[in-house]
């Protein structure tokens, strides 16, 4: 047993505090928006919007209104729009409390790799490097192992980095870990996962 995608998103949503401005990445992080409940959370889309609403209903799409994944979205009563320089000003300036994003690799020093695999097609880092360098807290949500069953929580990242010593917390299908001095610290295990199983699936040093 372990958490599925929605349970990982639900666990990540529990990290968010009332009043926070938050940036959600593509994939499982996008699902976090479904689980914020009664908390007053304002979502930022780094192409230039605070107060991102849900996808539009069919027929109400607006080509002038998209998210950072280029999907059509809607606005809310609180929405504010701004240009890209202002948008990354608030990211770099630490005004965004938290970013939740996916990753290919995270290591025990909090280094993050999620934009490039050498020898494969490189599409670009988009806003990921700015986000991990700038926001208050970086939470990675990803599967604990890759498709070959190898740990994605490493002693040292092997892929080109998105940011150095930037990750605060990692939420995987097997549990929750924090980046601390000397390695990763287990915060909790997923439902039905033992600490032994979590340790066995993790290459990084667990302290």
């Amino acid at each position: 047993m372990a958490w599925d995608r929605n349970q990982m998103a639900q666990r990540a949503a529990a990290e968010l505090e009332d009043g926070w401005y938050v940036n959600l990445g593509i994939g499982i992080p996008t699902l976090v928006a479904n689980y914020v409940g009664d908390k007053d959370i304002t979502l930022q889309s780094e192409n230039g919007m605070l107060g991102m609403g849900p996808f539009p209903i069919d027929g109400e799409e607006d080509p002038d209104l998209i998210n950072a994944g280029k999907q059509t979205i809607t606005e809310l009563r609180r929405t504010a729009y701004f240009d890209s320089a202002t948008s990354f000003g608030m990211i770099r300036g630490g005004k965004i409390a938290c970013a939740i994003l996916g990753a290919m690799e995270v290591d025990e020093k909090g280094d993050l790799a999620n934009w490039m695999i050498p020898g494969k097609l490189v599409k670009g880092m988009g806003g990921a490097m700015d986000l991990v360098a700038g926001v208050g807290r970086v939470i990675v949500v990803m599967d604990h192992t890759n498709k070959h069953g190898d740990s994605k929580l490493l002693r040292e990242c092997t892929l080109p980095l998105t940011g150095k010593a930037v990750v605060d917390r990692i939420i995987t299908n097997l549990g929750v870990l924090d980046v601390v001095d000397g390695g990763l610290k287990i915060v909790e295990c997923a439902d039905g996962v033992t600490e032994g199983e979590l340790r066995a699936a993790t290459e990084a040093t667990i302290v």
Partner: peptide, 13 residues
């Protein structure tokens, strides 16, 4: 030439 998105925006500004 890849530029991080915020770096590109700020370079222009």
């Amino acid at each position: 030439e890849f530029n991080p998105q915020g770096t590109l925006a700020e370079r222009m500004r």
